[in-house]
Every structure is written in structure tokens, then in C-alpha cells.
Design a protein around this nucleic acid. Structure first.
Lengths: 331, 331
DNA sequence: CTGAAAGCGCTTACAG
DNA sequence: CTGAAAGCGCTTACAG
């Protein structure tokens, strides 16, 4: 059956202490010849380290718990890919746990499950955490770090895009192209701090340009395809038409796009669209969608290092405007 | 600091054995009043079970290792969602490990990492496993199960769609709509058993209908967007045009679609497309893509039960044709 | 460079 | 219903 260091000790004649040192590569604690014998026996016996024993005795592990918001997004993948790439480089193993926004019980269960092991740290992906669970996290001695979400509470370390800058960038780009009647669609403005920040950036750009914003231009939602469809329905009913819309996410943009087609509104001739996120979906649809593109992969990649270094800062990854075919210049 | 059962024993005056029994809910081994006292103390001390200790002593755990092929697919998410849903119901925790097709070393590392813990089982998602690693899996006493991939080797338990039936269904649907010049694009026909099965199903349907298949109609690839683009380039250069194409995946279909637009080929007026997979992408693009839709969520959901019941059968989840707007009837 | 021993936090026969 | 004790597989001062 599964060989243990005891078996290797028996096979080689050394003590389990020595075997342990060789296997853990404690340099200077064993001779080359000893190491050779031990490693040979280990290989022959098909030895595999028992992580449970290791974690019990050292009270630590290389496991990173990643708690993911199960709300469907099409960018979580890229973040996880970044995390997993960095984890592979650093030798960390990843446990994935799912939870939901504003569902305190499910969130607590995920956090508790993570804390039942001596995890090296907890990464929370787009998890809009309940206040009580913040306390739970803080009371544990396990480092934690939020990814792709920011909070008013500056004591919560996180990495995400600068959402205010994103809103500003999208609006500014359209203003530069001669648009002034610019809608903002599909952002969650009730529960999401992210949504409010993007709105603030949009308002700032509009204000700087001296462009008035009518409240009906701002059609909130939940970042979904349906939010885009709803927004287009609403915009289509307006007496004075918009010349451009900023979509709160790629899915919102596609909802807008397809619903516009339904109404015979040509993109970008009759209406320009700038999307926020910039995932591959922007290249799949026709016309391709110009976007403020977030660097999700990097967000994930960097987050792990930050977590492990106990870096408690709030930091931003870059976003930039990618021009595709969904914006026309107005003159 | 972190409370242990010892602390609870001290606080309540019971032995650690009794505390352990209460906490593990070993019915009949303790009185109600004892349980109440122990549970109260546990709550007060913020006790969290140490899984490392539990796994060490019981030599088992509720952890499921999910080894994922990092090759980008847009359906892995749905499978994982199914797995995670079932895991939540069954009380299992999920560890995620990434690997690559036909990269024996990376695959072995993932498997080894999984086996370092007393995992309850290993699920392998679309992992085209190297022969040596099959031996490694089999020599472990840990159950394993493949998801969304089948092998010639019938000793490897798996759940996936019936790929021969998928190829047949797609071709048959087009034949029913009057098409006979039907291409097959983007399947991996060199390394993928899945690709070969779909090809076989396609050939069978064509043969039954008495439709000849020219070899240039079959344009292999790697299931990617680019494979679709390449295939369309090739089809466009043919002297006699196809009236329909079966795409090896949704991404292939979108590649075909966008490249067709580039050539001024109207879908479905000039060319019909049936996609294989049927993910949400089919609804996002215009025209929407008719597809043979696989039930990825269910595949994931079911796989976990199969794994845990040591059910070594090879089984299929249903696929069905979803009509959208990319197929025209020929008369 | 090596070994004997204690201990990580838990479970579970065994005895009462 | 409860407790004392052994043990899961490993690491690490301590002593040599």
C-alpha cells in the first residue's frame, strides 16, 4: 500500500528523521550518499508525501483557497487562469469554493471550509462580502485578498481595475468622437460599488466636456445580456435619440447590439457602443465591439503574490481602450 | 488562538474522546446534555475542525480533485458548475488542478498532487491522458472518472456525449433540409478520438442518404475560432460550393460565420451552418447558430456521483438539436 | 551528518 | 454514556 517514510527508513536502515530531512531537502543535514539511497528507495516504493500529516505538524500549507462568486461572468476564467499560472510557478495548490453575493450563510460556509485547513491564504473573486463575514475573515489569522472588486471600506485589501477611470475613459473616448448624447447601460447601481464608480467617472467626463446628462440616459441593470436588451428597449422609446451608449459589460453590449438590430438600428451608423471588459466576445460579434479592456489575467496573476506577501494595499491593474468597429465619429 | 478539542474538553470537563464524538455527531455515544455543553463551548471558543488532523487519522477526506485541461474551451465552465453544484449537495470540497493534453510530465504532476492527499476521488475534465499516467491512476487506490472525453480504451470510466451520434445528428438535420454538399470543419482528426467519432457519425449519415463526400469538404483543425476561419478560406477557394457546413465547435462556427461575412457569403442564404456544443455563444452572434447542443452541466453534475459510487461504466449524456437561424431549407 | 523522542489534532477500539 | 490510550505520518528541537 501507500509507502510512508517509515518504510523508507526500514528499507535504507536510516532513521525516519534522516529520511524526512532528505525528502524535505533540508540542505546540510545529510550527505549526498544518504540522499541518493533514500531517494532511490522512495522512488522504488512509489512514495508519495502525505500532505495531511505535513499540514498537521507544520500548521501551514501551500493551499490557496479561492472563493468565487457563482454569478455568471465571462471574465472569471481569465482571472482564475492568472491565479493558476502564478500558483503553478509558486508551487501552490488551489482549492475552489463557490459562494453568492450578499448571501451571508453561503459565504460563511465557504470561508469556514477554507479555514478548516491551514491554508496559506484566501482569495475572494468578485465576492461582495457581507459585513459579518468580514469580521470572520479578520479574526482568522489567514491572509485574504479581494480580486476584481473594491469596497468603500478601505481596510479590505484588493486588486481590481480603476472603475472610476474606466467610466471616464469610455465617456471621454466617445466625447472625443463627437458624441454628447451618451447613454450608460446595464450597470448595477443599487448594490455594486463598481457600478457607482463607473457612473462617477462617466459623469466627470461629461461634466468636463460640458455635456448635460439626462437621467433617462442612465439605465441600470445587473451587467447581464438582458440588461442590455432592456436598456435598448428603453432608449428606443425616447423621443430624442442617443448617439452612443456605454455598456456596463460585454454581455450588456451584446444585448444592446442584438436588440438594436431587432429595431433596425445600425451599429455604428445610427448608434455607437463602447463596451466595458473587452473579453474575446468583443471579437466574436459583428460589428466587433470597441471596449475599455480590463487585464483580468494579470489581476489574477498579481493577486496571489500580493496575498502571500501580506501586501494589504488596494491596487489597480491597467485598463485601456481597444478600438474595434462599434464606434462612429460624429461631425 | 485556534481552539482544539482539547480546549473544549478543558472548558467542559469532558474528555477529548467525548468531545470528539459530539462534534462528529456519533449518535448514541453521548447524552443530549453533554452535547449541549460541548456545542456551546465549541461555539464560544470559535472552534473550527482541523481537517488535516482528521484526514491523517481517518485516511480519507471529502475532497474531490478536479484535473482540468487548460486548453481553452468555452464549455468547461458549465461542467465545473455542474460538479460544484453536486459537490455542494454532497458536502464535498473541490481542489482544482490544471494540466495539458499529451504533456505527460504536467499531467503526472497534477495527478501526484492530487494523490498527496487522501482525496475521495479524481475527476479528469477533457484530459487526453498519456498512457503512463493511466498506469499511475490505476495503481493508486483512488477512484477516478473522465468527463467530456472518451477513449478507445474501454477500461477508462467516463461520461461524455455520444460523439458519433452528434456527428450523425448534425449531418442528418442538414440532409433533412435538402443539403447534400455538407462540409465538416474544425475537428481535430489527428489527436482527438472525439473528432474521429464525430466524423464517423457524419459519414454514416451521408452514406445512408446516398450522398458522396469529397475529401476537401473535411477540413480538420483544433476546435478553435481560427480553425473556422481557415476552413472558410479553404471552402471559399473550391470550384463547386458547399451548401452547408457542420462546425466542430461553437468557436469554429463563429470563425466560419465571421469569415463568411468577410467574403460576402450570407448565412444562411448562401451557406447553412450547424454548430456542435450549443453554448450561449450561439445566441449572442447574428444570425444565431443552430446547434447540436450538449448537456455540459449535467455531465458535470452526474460525474461526481458516478465517481463516488465507483461506477466504472462509460455513459452518455443527451445531446439534441436546437434550431436557431443559421440553417436554410434547400429545395 | 544522524537518531530518539515529543508532538501536531484528531478518531476509535477497548474497557468500564 | 464516558475516558485512557494508541496511533495516523510527518517535522524538528535536542543531543550527540
Amino acid at each position: 500500500m501507500d509507502a510512508t517514510i517509515k518504510d523508507i527508513a526500514q528499507a535504507t536502515g536510516f532513521s525516519i528523521a534522516t529520511v524526512s530531512r532528505v525528502l524535505a531537502n533540508k540542505e546540510g543535514f545529510f550527505s549526498k550518499s544518504t540522499a541518493a539511497k533514500v531517494n532511490k528507495a522512495a522512488k522504488e516504493l512509489g512514495y508519495q508525501k502525505n500532505m495531511a500529516a505535513l499540514e498537521l505538524v507544520t500548521r501551514r500549507s501551500d493551499v490557496i483557497a479561492v472563493i468565487i462568486n457563482s454569478t455568471k461572468t465571462n471574465f472569471a476564467d481569465a482571472i482564475i487562469e492568472g491565479i493558476q499560472q502564478r500558483a503553478a510557478e509558486l508551487g501552490n495548490t488551489i482549492i475552489i469554493l463557490y459562494t453568492r453575493d450578499r448571501d451571508e450563510a453561503v459565504q460563511r460556509k465557504a470561508i469556514t471550509t477554507a479555514l478548516e485547513r491551514p491554508v496559506a491564504g484566501i482569495l475572494l473573486l468578485s465576492v461582495d462580502i457581507a459585513p459579518d463575514n468580514v469580521a470572520l475573515l479578520k479574526s482568522s489569522n489567514t491572509p485574504f485578498y479581494f480580486v476584481s472588486i473594491a469596497f468603500r471600506d478601505a481596510s479590505l485589501p484588493c486588486i481590481c481595475s480603476d472603475d472610476r477611470a474606466i467610466g471616464y475613459m469610455a465617456a471621454h473616448y466617445l466625447l472625443e468622437h463627437g458624441h454628447t448624447r451618451i447613454g450608460l447601460a446595464g450597470l448595477d447601481l443599487n448594490n455594486s460599488y463598481t457600478g457607482l464608480l463607473r457612473l462617477a467617472g462617466y459623469r466627470k467626463a461629461m461634466e468636463e466636456a460640458g455635456a448635460e446628462v439626462a437621467e433617462e440616459w442612465i439605465h441600470s441593470g445587473d451587467f447581464s445580456y438582458e440588461s442590455g436588451v432592456d436598456a435598448m428597449d428603453s432608449y428606443h422609446g425616447m423621443s430624442e435619440r442617443l448617439s452612443a451608449v456605454i455598456a456596463g459589460s460585454d454581455l450588456v453590449a451584446i444585448g444592446l447590439l442584438n436588440r438594436a438590430r431587432h429595431y433596425g438600428v445600425d451599429i455604428p451608423q445610427n448608434l455607437s457602443i463602447v463596451s466595458i471588459d473587452g473579453t474575446s466576445l468583443c471579437d466574436y460579434v459583428q460589428p466587433t465591439l470597441s471596449s475599455v479592456t480590463q487585464d483580468f489575467y494579470r489581476m489574477g496573476y498579481i493577486s496571489l503574490g500580493r496575498l502571500l506577501e501580506h501586501d494589504d494595499e488596494i491596487s489597480f491593474t491597467d485598463s485601456h481602450l481597444v478600438e474595434r468597429d462599434s464606434v462612429a465619429t460624429l461631425d
